[in-house]
Every structure is written in C-alpha cells, then in structure tokens.
Simulated scan of single mutants.
Amino acid sequence: MPHNRVDVAMRELIALFSCLESADLVDRLARTAAAVAGTTYAGLVRVDALRQEAHCMHLHAPAGDPLRMRRWLAESGVLKELAASSATVLLVQGRSVGEPGFLATPVPAAMVDHTFVWVAGRAFGDGDAHLLSRFATAAGRALEAASGLEAAVRLLRGVRAFRPA
C-alpha cells in the first residue's frame, strides 16, 4: 500500500508541474506585451550565446500582418542590432520609409540567455521603455519558473522510474 501512495503522489505532482506549456506562456507574454504597450505587435527574440545572431522566438501580430512585421524583422537589420546590444533598442516610427516604430528591451533572467521582448507599430517614448522594462523583468521570472518546472518534472520522472518496486 505505501508504494501505491507514492505512485499516486508522484503522478499528481508531475501532473501539477506539467500543466504549464512553454509555447503557450511565450504566446501569452507576447500578447500581454502588446496590450501593455497599446499596440497590436509584440514578440520575443533570442540571441545566441556568442551574440552573433538573433532569431524571432515568437511574433504576435494581427491577422494578415498589415505592417508586414515578419518581413521587416527579417530585412531591416533590427535582429543584427539586437544581437549586438545588451540594452534597450528604440527605433523611431517613420511610416514614409517603412519604419513601424520599434521598442525592445532585454529580459533579465539567469536561465534565459540574451532574450528581448519587443513591441512595434507606433511611436514609443521613455515612459514606454520603462514600462516594457518592468514587464520584461516579470517575463524573465515567468520564463525561469517555467524552465524550473520542466526540470522538476524530468527529475520526478527519474525518481519515479528508479524507485524500488
């Protein structure tokens, strides 16, 4: 009987820790960043450890992507700028030259290397940068917590697998 209790307790703990999906968390973070910034575009960018390349982890955009942000991110050089930067990046809005207005800030997290949360689609100022920076801190904590839960599930499955019968 004690082994059955252990099995049930382990299954329940694993189920509880497994309920958070990383992809859903990243999507919700991007959607919330857009809402916080009062725009419809937001996302996360990850920079490699050598700070040579950046790629878009997630992009939240309205249906049809009217500002063509996917294309702009790929062609504008902003990803190269983020790869080289460790600070907030603010690009002014210039619709006549195809600049949508862009603000990105680093996500401070020990376990998530070189990630930026960004918003785009309007003119941004210092107040927006401060607010997005505070949001990025919360996002970093959330990403670290999700990573920690995933690691805990792997460890618990190992304990369960090697527990004496």
Rank of each mutant, 00 (worst) to 15 (best):
A142Y: 11
V117N: 04
G121Q: 06
G127I: 01
A109T: 09
A139E: 03
V112E: 09
T115S: 05
D113E: 13
A129H: 02
V117H: 07
A109R: 09
R134L: 15
G127H: 08
G140N: 10
R122G: 01
P108Q: 04
V112I: 15
A136F: 08
M111H: 11
V119N: 00
R141A: 13
R122Y: 03
W118T: 03
H114A: 04
A138P: 01
V119S: 01
H114L: 03
D126C: 01
F135Q: 06
A123H: 05
V119H: 08
A110F: 13
A142I: 08
W118A: 04
A139G: 09
A109Y: 10
D128S: 03
G127K: 08
F124C: 03
A120G: 07
H130F: 11
D128V: 06
A109C: 13
T137P: 00
A129V: 05
D113T: 12
A129N: 05
L131N: 10
T137W: 10
V107G: 02
T137N: 06
V107P: 05
P108R: 07
A109V: 08
T115Y: 09
F116L: 01
F124Y: 11
A123P: 00
A123V: 04
A138D: 12
G125V: 02
A123D: 10
V107F: 07
P108E: 03
F124G: 07
D126F: 05
D113F: 11
W118R: 00
P108V: 04
G140D: 04
A129Y: 08
G121N: 07
M111P: 00
F124L: 00
F124V: 02
R122K: 15
G140F: 14
S133E: 10
F135E: 07
T115Q: 06
F135A: 05
S133Q: 13
L132Q: 09
S133T: 14
P108A: 04
G127V: 03
A129P: 03
F116T: 10
G121W: 11
G140M: 12
F124T: 10
H130G: 00
S133P: 02
A120R: 10
F135M: 02
A109H: 11
R134K: 13
A120H: 08
A142D: 09
A123M: 03
A136H: 10
F135G: 06
V117K: 05
V112L: 09
S133C: 06
H130S: 06
G127N: 12
D126E: 14
G125K: 06
A120C: 08
M111R: 15
V112T: 15
A139Y: 14
G140A: 06
L132A: 06
T115H: 12
V117Y: 01
A109G: 11
G127Y: 04
G140C: 08
M111Q: 14
F116G: 04
G121K: 06
G125D: 15
A142G: 09
F135S: 06
A138M: 15
A120T: 07
M111C: 01
D126Y: 02
D113I: 10
A142R: 15
S133Y: 07
V107L: 07
G140K: 13
G125Y: 02
A123T: 08
V119L: 03
D113P: 03
D113Q: 12
A138F: 15
M111Y: 11
S133A: 14
T115D: 00
H114P: 00
G140Y: 12
H114K: 13
